[in-house]
Design a protein around this nucleic acid. Structure first.
Length: 258
DNA sequence: AATAACACCAACCGCAACACG
DNA sequence: GCGTGTTGCGGTTGGTGTTAT
């Protein structure tokens, strides 16, 4: 069976929809439901292919579509969902009532991708001056990057992982052990840390002790990569560096210059 | 004022998955 | 299990509006 030629070859109309066409399609679907999309245009009296009608209805005419700009909350949700699901726009749209996959895809390519890249490059710059971390326990030596890398494989529950430095290859077993305890502190951590440093009256040096109040800044568990493959795809999609220093409650961080 | 460059977004295309006989 | 038709999805395109030169 040969694929049916689409629209133009069949003498059907293409391009932007007129108000009249919208009205015809809307009133037909309201009366009869869409049923078979392929048969719909003929039944409704439209010179369009079924595919085009379906798209128009789903992305524009459906009554439950939310119009207007995306709120910050929606944008943040998209970013988080994209980290989790990748380019599965329909799955992302399913979590955002009133928004279509096409709209989300557009907003991702026009705004969020740039926004994320900008955020990452700023974070990269900040990461150049790495903070020193002092352990609060008996062997309170400053943590080095190699130490932190080895900490990756530990599953000690009182550790939180923080990212600092360039991307490294991480084995899938490392990911598994990290998933239980891993939390990534992102740019907001450093800005918040800086703000704390500025406002704190008893803080003489530019250092910060990790306290429980800071824990909510950690990445929520549900947006961690589900698999090594997901992890890699996230990395390829702009999240191209992770800090790899591990901190825990009570640790003291000497903050970099801001 | 003209036009080039850029940004946005609706619509299209091709493919894969699914449904059904 | 296979062939065919339909639907849904993600990537891409191109028209239009806006901003910069």
């Amino acid at each position: 069976m040969v694929r049916a030629p689409c629209c133009e070859k069949m003498g059907l109309k293409r391009g932007p929809w007129s108000l009249e066409e919208d009205e015809i399609l809307t009133s037909y679907i309201q009366k009869h439901d869409h049923g078979n999309w392929r048969a719909l245009p003929k039944l409704a009296g439209l010179l369009r292919c079924g595919k085009s009608c379906r798209l128009r209805w789903i992305n524009y005419l459906r009554p439950d579509i939310k119009r207007g700009n995306f709120t910050n909350e929606e944008e943040e949700n998209i970013i988080k969902l994209h980290e989790m699901l990748g380019n599965r726009w329909s799955a992302i749209a399913a979590k955002l009532p009133g928004r279509t996959d096409n709209e989300i895809k557009n907003v991702w390519h026009t705004h969020l991708k740039k926004k994320l890249n900008q955020t990452n490059s700023e974070a990269k710059k900040k990461a150049i001056s790495k903070p020193k971390i002092k352990r609060s326990d008996s062997n309170s030596s400053t943590i080095t990057q190699s130490e932190s890398a080895s900490a990756c494989t530990t599953s000690s529950s009182d550790f939180s992982s923080v990212t600092v430095g360039e991307r490294k290859d991480i084995k899938s077993e490392d990911i598994e052990s990290m998933e239980e305890t891993m939390a990534v502190i992102d740019e907001s951590f450093w800005s918040e840390a800086a703000a704390l440093d500025e406002t704190s009256t008893d803080m003489k040096s530019s250092s910060l002790t990790i306290s429980n109040e800071m824990l909510p800044l950690q990445y929520p568990d549900e947006i961690l990569p589900e698999s090594h493959e997901d992890y890699n795809s996230n990395m390829d999609d702009g999240m191209d560096f992770w800090y790899d220093i591990f901190i825990r409650t009570g640790d003291q961080i000497e903050l970099p210059e801001f």
